[in-house]
């Protein structure tokens, strides 16, 4: 039977917070203020998310579910764009599209083809799954985009040599793109090797804690692992392609002024 912690129980996490603050003070890490700030943000953001999602559950309208997901995608794009070249005017739109497209395709496959939720917008499934997919799309997209841009900057001579030899910008950046996508995918691949042995993922742990059978939680976790891998790849590839188009002119020239 799942234990639902009361607010009094929850307040006991203050013990852990106190320990962290004490350690930070004792070891002169200077992190007390940051930690307090981060703790307050964590509690407020999670409660806000919890109550908003609960309200969407209770109201039960498909358009509220989609509105919430759209808002989440804008926030994700805003965060993602911070790690792209600031002079690239289209960066926020590129980040949004990469996150949106990666999330849409993968959420559709998971919710409508694999677990077949009914109704199609069932918030209990759609919101957490799409949220998780979006988070991964954001991280992988930003990681790949950042790497692609910085490598392009440091390897301009190589890229321009390729262009000079008559290659397209797509061909000239192939190696940079490959490294950026691999870089974004490696953390996910590593976790696929260790999942269930070295660590139990947050979602699986959460499901078990809230009373689901470990086998059901396992099935969901398998879906989630593949869903994350596929999302990472989709979003990273889309964002890199958009960035390449933004960072080169139609005449296959590097836009040096954007770096």
């Amino acid at each position: 039977m799942a234990v639902n912690p009361s607010y009094a129980d929850l307040s006991m996490v203050l013990i852990l917070m106190g320990a962290v603050l004490f350690a930070s003070w004792r070891e002169r890490l200077g992190l007390e203020r940051t930690f307090l700030h981060a703790s307050i943000r964590t509690v407020l953001q999670l409660f806000l998310a919890g109550y908003v999602i609960e309200a969407v559950f209770n109201l039960g309208h498909w358009y509220l579910v989609l509105t919430l997901l759209t808002l989440m995608s804008f926030v994700a794009a805003h965060e993602g764009a911070k790690r792209l070249p600031s002079k690239l005017a289209w960066a926020p739109a590129m980040a949004w599209f990469a996150i949106f497209a990666g999330t849409f395709v993968n959420t559709f496959v998971v919710t409508e083809i694999i677990i077949k939720i009914d109704p199609w917008w069932s918030p209990r499934y759609l919101i957490p799954l799409a949220g998780m997919i979006m988070g991964n799309a954001l991280n992988s997209g930003a990681l790949a985009g950042e790497r692609f841009t910085s490598d392009l900057k440091t390897q301009t001579a190589e890229v321009e040599t390729m262009l000079s030899l008559g290659f397209s910008s797509g061909e000239a950046t192939m190696e940079i793109k490959r490294k950026a996508v691999k870089g974004a995918l490696i953390p996910t691949l590593n976790s696929m090797f260790t999942v269930g042995i070295v660590h139990l993922p947050g979602m699986m742990t959460g499901q078990i804690l809230s009373g689901a059978s470990p086998v059901t939680a396992t099935k969901y976790q398998i879906i989630v692992m593949f869903m994350i891998t596929s999302t990472v790849l989709t979003s990273a590839l889309i964002l890199i392609e958009l960035l390449r188009r933004g960072l080169f002119t139609k005449a296959e020239q590097v836009r040096h002024n954007l770096f």
Partner: peptide
């Protein structure tokens, strides 16, 4: 533009060669 660059070749001050053998580089384009 790709034809143009092949027909008007640029050789830069600092030579840029890629990973692999000299032959890989020569056969690149």
């Amino acid at each position: 533009v790709k034809t143009l660059r092949k027909k008007i070749q640029l050789v830069q001050q600092t030579p840029v060669l890629f990973d692999g053998t000299v032959m890989d580089n020569l056969l690149l384009a």
